[in-house]
Structure formats: C-alpha cells, structure tokens
C-alpha cells in the first residue's frame, strides 16, 4: 500500500504534484484546529449542567424539554406538508454541464430552492417555556425525508411538535412593561379616545360650558383618565416575562438545538475529532514525504 502511494507520488507530473502537495498541506493545517474544535464543543456539551427554565440564570445554559409551537399554531413543512415547529427544506436539480456532461452519466445537483424556518418555537421542560430563535442555531433534526421527482430531489428536515430537544445557548429574559408604564399607556389611550370624540370630551370636562376645553379643563381630563387607568390596572399586576434562547455572546460557545440527545451528540463530536486528528497525521506525513521527494530535505 505504502509502496503504491510512493510510486504514484513519484510518477506524478510536476503540476499535479504541486497541486496535491498544496491540498495535502492545507488539509493538514485545517484538520488540527478542526479536531480541537470538535473536542471543545463535545466537552462544553458534557460539562454544562442542565438548568430548569423557571430558575435558570441569565447566560449560557443547557435545557432539555419538548418542542412546542408558539400559540399552539404549528408550521406546515413545505415539502411533506407535515405539521412541525421548525423545518429546513431544499430542492435540488440534476444538471448536466461541463465536466458533469450527460456522457459522464452523472449530473451535478444544483440547489434551486431552499427555505429554513426563521420562526421561533418553544422548549417546554415542565417548569416553564422558553422561545428559541433558530436563526443562528446549529439545528440537528431527527425527522428527515428525501425523495426524487424527475430530475429533482428534495430534502426536508423537521422538528415536530412534542419532540424531545436538547438546547445549548444564551438564555435571556425580557421583562414586560412595569405597572406605571401600563397605567401611563392606558391613560394616554383614553385621552386619545376622548380627543377623537369631541362631544363626549365637552360633555364630561367643559366645566364652564363655553364649548371649549381650556388648560385647567384639559388638566382635569388628564387626571381623570389617570385615575381611571389606575383602577383598570390591577394592584397586583406583575410584568410579564419572556424567556428566549439566542446565540451566545461568546463565539467560542456553541448554539445548538438538537433532537439527538447529549450523549449521542458528544459521541458524534468525539468521532469527528478522531477523524480530524487521523487526517492531520496522514496528510502531515504525506506532505512531509512529498517535500522529501521533491526537495530531498
């Protein structure tokens, strides 16, 4: 085997030899950091404790729970027309051009349409719900359909309602408006209503019956709407809270939404890292041999 590779390398013409050397060297350069990237991400997954949504602190967290659509309105996947909370759809056409000519009996698959759902969905872990922004996330879906129609092929991945999901990302809580703000907004809305209905405004606040609202009367109207708004907004009003999972601030931390469990993902990453290191060693040694052959160092 080694002899065959050496003979093949020695007999290459100079242009192909240089091209192969560059490819081999680049692969060697890329595979080392790639190997550590996979190790690092696998370890982050293993080392991050699972939090409960109701008590999670702001920052980088891990959640496990079920996928839920927002307002119980699932999306419709464009290819299979299946209800889901997230989808990624791709249509490819087999094209015969240049090197991929019909004579070669092999076409090149060109993407002609693709759509990835940008809509948020919830993760529900039984203690609370958190919206997931799938935009920047690495999504690993379990339900995948592939089918062909003429010279088109379609690939669709989905996360379905109620499916168990595993997420890693930046947890943020957005507070709704405070009681004071709600009162202010309600009072302003009432005043605007009154402004539109001049008859009612005059009837209620034109104290001197001159058919006009002067400054004092206007101030009375403002106070009255304020008092009314205070009555309308409950004393025990609690601002609403919306939890969202977004891309981590630190680019070193992964943003993952996966239908595969933590163990499955980490073993996959471990395998990728072993593959990367094997590539690093193989291409490194091969590049070294090529340099020795060419320049005899």
């Amino acid at each position: 085997m080694i002899d065959a590779v050496l003979t093949f390398t020695i007999n290459l013409d100079p242009d192909k030899f240089m091209a192969l050397l560059v490819v081999s060297f680049l692969l060697c350069l890329i595979s080392l950091p790639a190997g550590f990237y996979f190790i690092r991400h696998g370890r982050i997954m293993q080392d991050t404790p699972t939090s409960k949504i109701r008590s999670a602190s702001q920052g980088f967290v891990e959640f496990k729970g079920r996928a839920r659509s927002i307002d119980d309105k699932p999306l419709r996947a464009p290819g299979t027309k299946t209800d889901c909370v997230w989808y990624d759809y791709k249509a490819e056409q087999q094209q015969y051009k240049g090197w991929f000519s019909p004579g070669n009996h092999r076409g090149k698959w060109i993407t002609v349409a693709e759509h990835r759902s940008p809509f948020s969905f919830y993760i529900d872990d039984g203690t609370g719900v958190c919206a997931i922004d799938p935009d920047a996330a690495t999504v690993k879906a379990k339900f995948t359909n592939k089918w062909k129609q003429g010279n088109y092929r379609y690939i669709e991945s989905r996360i379905e309602e109620g499916e168990m999901i595993y997420c890693l990302g930046q947890f943020e809580t957005h507070q709704g408006p405070s009681r004071q703000k709600v009162i202010k907004e309600t009072a302003r809305a009432s005043l605007n209503q009154l402004k539109k209905n001049r008859k009612a405004l005059l009837q209620r606040f034109d104290a001197n019956s001159d058919g006009e609202i002067d400054l004092d009367e206007w101030n009375t109207a403002r106070s009255a709407t304020r008092v009314q708004a205070e009555k309308e907004v409950d004393d025990d009003y609690v601002p609403t809270q919306h939890h969202v999972l977004v891309e981590p601030f630190s680019k070193k931390n992964p943003y993952i939404v996966s239908c595969f469990g933590e163990d499955e993902l980490t073993s996959r990453y471990r395998l990728y890292s072993v593959g990367s290191f094997a590539t690093f060693l193989t291409t490194g040694v091969y590049s070294f041999i090529m340099v020795v052959i060419r320049w005899g160092i």
């Binding site: 550590f36 190790i39 690092r40 080392d47 690093f280 060693l281 040694v285």
Partner: peptide
Amino acid sequence: FITGAVLIIVFCYAITIYNG
C-alpha cells in the same frame, strides 16, 4: 516527524483539558 506531530496533538489536548 510523526513523533513531533503526535507531541503537538498531545500538548494541545493537554491545554484543552486544562481549559475544560
């Protein structure tokens, strides 16, 4: 060369473990 490459991997791996 192979020893050197393996040592590089081991050294970087040790750093990854430490950081972890």
